[in-house]
């Protein structure tokens, strides 16, 4: 029973990847179409179908996550595979949620592409079957800590997509990147709007990350008797936090708005990826929960 649920989850994961791929193609077709008309046209039906397909992928992905949780009898983020599965789900969810508030569909290609890549890497390299939790991980602070970390990561990823678009857009506005292949940028808002949007989203990510660090410290105090010990993972969480604090200041500083701030935001997201990908696998420390 449990085992079959586990394989249903895996099948759903692969299906979600396939559906995301279709969404990615549709998003790209939309951008290409709009580039051909120099961005003058309004969003096409390609874009609308891309969003619909993305929502479908999200639902399947959600199913994959829930079946995984049921078969494991716990939250689905106790090892690297599960964290990756859930974080990608939340990333797509955050993207869809932001769209209810502001239209950011133009980064859909980036978000769906990133989701395929992340899911693929996670499933191929980090897949582990459901296994029990060691005592130190059995704590509701784990639930809170990882939950907010995943949410923060989702916002950071969307923010990074916007910051990257902002950098390209700014170059284009300065008269660079005028070749045909960059023409899709005319479908994007101005670099200034992109920056404002990125800022709003990254600030939410920062708040979640602040909670992540705090919940982690409380959990560490419960489990290991100290709330902060500069364990590898703690070091990287701190690095991420200060980088984004730097980004927030850059936005409020003359001479640092615009390009330098966007670069800082990308460096920050690089640290997020490093923290997840490299630190979990190659570094040793108390947070060896990768399950590999």
């Amino acid at each position: 029973m449990t085992n079959s649920l586990e394989s249903i989850s895996l099948i759903a994961t692969y299906s979600a990847m396939a559906v995301y791929t279709l969404a990615f193609i549709l998003f790209t077709v939309d951008l290409a179409g709009r580039a051909a008309t120099d961005g003058q046209s309004t969003p096409t039906r390609w874009l609308r179908s891309a969003m619909a397909v993305l929502v479908l992928g999200f639902v399947i992905h959600f199913g994959a996550d829930v079946t995984r949780a049921i078969s494991a009898h716990r939250v689905p983020w106790a090892n690297m595979y599960e964290f990756g599965l859930t974080a990608t789900l939340v990333l797509v969810g955050v993207f869809l949620g932001i769209n209810l508030w502001r239209d950011v569909r133009f980064v859909g290609a980036f978000v769906s592409g990133f989701a395929i890549l992340a899911l693929g890497i996670v499933t191929v390299n980090f897949y582990v079957a459901v296994s029990p939790l060691p005592p130190a991980l059995q704590n509701y602070w784990l639930v809170i800590h990882v939950c907010v970390a995943v949410l923060g990561t989702g916002f950071f990823a969307t923010g990074a997509a916007l910051s990257a678009s902002q950098l390209f857009q700014q170059s284009r506005e300065e008269g660079k990147l005028q070749t045909r292949s960059w023409r899709f940028l005319s479908a994007f808002p101005s670099s200034e709007s992109l920056e404002a949007l990125a800022y709003r989203i990254l600030v939410i990510g920062f708040v979640f990350w602040t909670f992540t660090v705090i919940a982690g410290a409380i959990w560490a105090e419960r489990a290991w008797g100290r709330y902060w010990g500069w364990d590898t993972k703690e070091v990287w969480s701190f690095i991420i936090w200060t980088l984004f604090a730097g980004y927030i200041h850059a936005r409020a500083t003359r001479g640092w708005r615009g390009r330098p701030a966007a670069i800082l935001s990308l460096i920050g997201f690089g640290a997020v990826l490093f923290n997840y990908g490299i630190v979990n696998i190659f570094f040793k420390g108390l947070h060896v929960y990768s399950g590999l």
Binding site: F238, T242, L243, G246, H249, A250, G255, W256, L264
Partner: peptide
């Protein structure tokens, strides 16, 4: 503010 940014980034890298 510029110093604050630079110091924040420096602390991050120094860690």
């Amino acid at each position: 503010m510029r110093t604050a940014i630079i110091l924040l980034v420096l602390v991050a890298f120094a860690s």
